[in-house]
C-alpha cells in the first residue's frame, strides 16, 4: 500500500515543481527545480519494492549469519544518496546563473540606449533572434576582467 502514498507524494512534488518552473519569475524557477529534484529523489527511491523492514545495516559483523530477510533494498538508497547531493550542486549552479543574469540585466537596464525588448527568455516580451551567436560583434563587451579586490583594499 506504500506504493500508492509514495505515488501521490511524487505526483504532487512533480506537479507543483512543474508549475513553478512554468512561471516567469526566475526565483520561482529555482524553487521549482528544487521541488522537482526532491520528486526525482523519491521517484528513484520507489524503484525498490518499498516493503517494510529494517535499515540495511548489519548489527554485528562478527556474528553475521547471512540473514538479510528483514533488510530493505540498499541499492536505491545508495543511488539516491548521491542524487541528493548532486541535485543540490546543480541547484546551486543554477542559483549562480540566475544571480549572474540578474547582474547583467541590471547593467543592461541602465544603458542609455536600452531597448524595450531584449533577448531574455525570462522576459515578458522575449523573442527569438536567429543567428545570434554568428557574429562576435553582436556583443558589446562591458568589462573584460572580473576584478578581485586587492589584499590591501579588503580590510
Amino acid at each position: 500500500m506504500s506504493g500508492l502514498t509514495a505515488a501521490i507524494l511524487v505526483g504532487a512534488l512533480f506537479a507543483t515543481g512543474a508549475y513553478l518552473i512554468l512561471r516567469r519569475d526566475p526565483i520561482k524557477l529555482i524553487l521549482g527545480l528544487t521541488m522537482v529534484s526532491y520528486g526525482v529523489n523519491v521517484l528513484l527511491f520507489t524503484s525498490s519494492t518499498l516493503r517494510k523492514g529494517i535499515p540495511p545495516v548489519i548489527a554485528d559483523k562478527k556474528t553475521f549469519t547471512g540473514d538479510i530477510s528483514q533488510f530493505v533494498d540498499p541499492l536505491p538508497q545508495a543511488l539516491v544518496l548521491t542524487a541528493i547531493v548532486i541535485s543540490f550542486g546543480i541547484v546551486a549552479f543554477l542559483v549562480v546563473l540566475v544571480s549572474r543574469r540578474n547582474m547583467l540585466v541590471e547593467q543592461y537596464g541602465k544603458a542609455p540606449d536600452a531597448p524595450t525588448a531584449i533577448n531574455d527568455p525570462f522576459g515578458a516580451t522575449a523573442h527569438y533572434l536567429s543567428g545570434l551567436d554568428a557574429d562576435p560583434d553582436d556583443y558589446e563587451w562591458v568589462d573584460d576582467t572580473f576584478r578581485e579586490p586587492a589584499q590591501s583594499e579588503r580590510s
Binding site: 549562480v96 544571480s99 568589462d143 572580473f146 576584478r147
Partner: peptide, 15 residues
C-alpha cells in the same frame, strides 16, 4: 565554494 560565491556582499555593485 558555492556558499561563498553566493554570499558575496558586494556582488552586483562592482562587477
Amino acid at each position: 565554494s558555492f556558499l561563498l560565491a553566493l554570499s558575496r556582499q558586494d556582488e552586483g555593485k562592482t562587477p
